[in-house]
């Protein structure tokens, strides 16, 4: 904790601001009362209703599938793009490429959504593919906007990684493809994993772009949530939020523990190196 009072106050205010809404959501999800913000009694009622809501469950299942597939493709494309930006030096059209990679990071979603929709419509006219709008178009759109995030994560890992490791492998006789799979990939694996998780989360959470490119038969979880909260409070959403927060918290805590372990091992190794030297 920082020493200065002012900083301590600022930190606590900021964190409270970030967490109070989430904590309230969780608390109220156990509230039996329909008018969410007035407490009546503790119950799991809304969790039960959530589980019986077939429309919501099937939307959730669709969202998970879409997120899984998009994240997996986005990781491949994003890793390649990260490699290009971090390792290929100057290639033809580099400026355009890095522009196209970083623009989606900040591009308002309504613009991305509209433009992708118009693309899909035009493509269907010209090529007859993709037929209509549905899971496929959602996946294509999600790959496009999540790959930028993967690229940034992978690129910054590559930039901080000593390029002479790859050169050394090449110098010892490994061809570029082999260098990538035996040296680069294992070393950037943590970045790739976090890139995948990031892409997965972003895809799972996306409402605006999805709304543009989805069809009548494909409604994702955020779309269901949006239509139910648009009119005000919905206790089932609180229950859903609690589940999401729990999963994320468990994941992040596990990652934190794993990192702490790694750190301890590293310190032990360093001691060993000093004694051994």
């Amino acid at each position: 904790m920082p020493k200065s009072w002012f900083l301590r106050f600022g930190l606590i205010t900021g964190l409270l601001f970030l967490y109070i809404p989430i904590i309230l959501l969780i608390v109220l999800s156990f509230n039996d009362n329909r008018s969410v913000s007035v407490w009546s009694e503790f119950s799991f009622r809304w969790y039960g209703e959530l589980m019986r809501d077939d429309q919501l469950l099937s939307a959730a299942w669709l969202s998970v599938r879409v997120a899984f597939i998009s994240a997996s493709f986005a990781v491949v494309l994003g890793t390649l793009a990260g490699m290009m930006l971090a390792r290929f030096g100057a290639f033809k059209g580099r400026a355009l490429f890095s522009g196209m990679v970083s623009a989606p990071l900040v591009m308002p979603e309504v613009i991305m959504g509209l433009s992708l929709l118009l693309l899909f419509v035009s493509m269907e006219q010209v090529l007859g593919w993709p037929e209509g709008r549905g899971m496929l178009t959602i996946i294509l759109a999600h790959i496009t906007f999540t790959m930028s995030f993967v690229t940034v994560v992978v690129q910054s890992r590559l930039v901080s990684m000593d390029a002479s490791l790859e050169e050394a492998a090449m110098d010892l006789g490994a061809r570029p493809a082999k260098v990538f799979f035996v040296i680069t990939l294992p070393l950037i694996a943590p970045a790739i994993v976090s890139g995948w998780l990031l892409a997965f989360t972003l895809s799972l959470d996306d409402l605006v772009i999805t709304s543009f490119v989805s069809g009548p038969g494909s409604t994702t979880l955020p779309q269901i949530v949006f239509s139910s909260v648009r009119l005000g409070l919905s206790p089932k959403v609180n229950a859903l939020a609690t589940i999401v927060v729990t999963i994320v918290a468990i994941g992040i805590i596990c990652a934190g523990i794993y990192n702490a372990r790694q750190e301890k091992a590293r310190q032990r190794d360093e001691q060993m190196a000093q004694q051994g030297g």
Partner: peptide, 11 residues
Amino acid sequence: WTSFLIRVYAW
């Protein structure tokens, strides 16, 4: 990492 939509909804 938690849903953007849900965090807006909380307000």
